[in-house]
Computed example of a mutant assay.
Amino acid sequence: MAGWDAAQYLKFADERTRPAADLLARVPLQAPARVVDLGCGPGNSTELLVARFPQADIRGLDSSPEMLDAARQRLPGIAFAEADIATFRPEPPPDLLFANAVLQWLPDHASLLPRLARSLAPGGCLAVQMPDNLEEPSHRLMRAVAGEPPFATRLAAAAASRARIGSFAEYDAWLSAAGCTVEIWRTTYVHPLAGHRGIVEWVRGTGLRPFLDPLDGEGQAAFLARYEAALAEAYPPQSDGRVLLPFPRLFLVARRTR
């Protein structure tokens, strides 16, 4: 995929930060020494970690140079580094691995999450939040439009860009076997947006990227027009023109006990 657009992502900064704050509120650690923000993006989640744990050694990792530039501007006193979570091996073992809205882009959660959990210091926590919206109309319609002419050939691989989110039972089994106690929950946020174009702008910074990146400017405009028309059928507007976007997210906090 092309580089991430930090400015587009931050158009909805408050809404995107709220799940990170909700996840952090359930982390049971009092004074972790070493904290790593996996997929730190533009630093909005890292900022929460700094406020909660001001004495900790906090580091942010991301694969996007654009996001890291934004994070460094936001938090110049924090160390940020470019890294691939799929191969990341933390050393020394961290007390908290915080992964807000990033692991859904990586495959093989049956191996990935236990590996991250086993990398923790004893008593440490892996805290994860992932969008769980692949079956919501906003995302089903991306795939549907991508399957239509003239997009089908160029976008054949786009629908596979995000990993399958596991079930509650799967995450509990994988992480329990890795020596953790596990807390899992799912929350649906409801975002009032400025019409169907508001939904387009929301997902353009995240879920739409794999569908837009392979297209040229004219192709992107055609795809977005067709997608917005499909959204208009799926999301009826409120009387004042706002559109409500339900957004389910899966959360888990795994604490290493052995």
Rank of each mutant, 00 (worst) to 15 (best):
A79R: 07
F80E: 00
F80G: 02
F80I: 00
A81C: 13
D84W: 01
R89S: 11
E91S: 05
P92K: 05
P94K: 10
A101V: 10
L103Q: 10
L103G: 11
Q104M: 04
W105G: 05
D108N: 15
D108W: 13
P114V: 04
R118G: 10
L120W: 02
P122W: 12
G124M: 09
G124C: 07
C125Q: 06
A127I: 09
P131M: 01
P131T: 02
D132T: 08
N133A: 07
P137V: 11
R143T: 14
A144R: 04
V145G: 02
V145Y: 01
A146N: 05
A146W: 05
E148T: 01
E148P: 01
P149M: 04
P149K: 03
P150V: 09
F151H: 11
A152N: 09
L155I: 09
A156K: 09
A158I: 07
A160D: 09
A160F: 09
A160W: 03
A160T: 01
S161A: 15
R162A: 05
R164C: 13
R164Y: 13
G166F: 05
S167I: 08
E170C: 00
D172R: 15
A173Q: 14
A173S: 15
A173W: 10
L175H: 11
L175T: 09
A177W: 10
A178T: 11
G179V: 05
V182Y: 00
T187A: 10
T188C: 12
L193Q: 11
L193S: 11
H196D: 10
H196C: 04
I199Q: 03
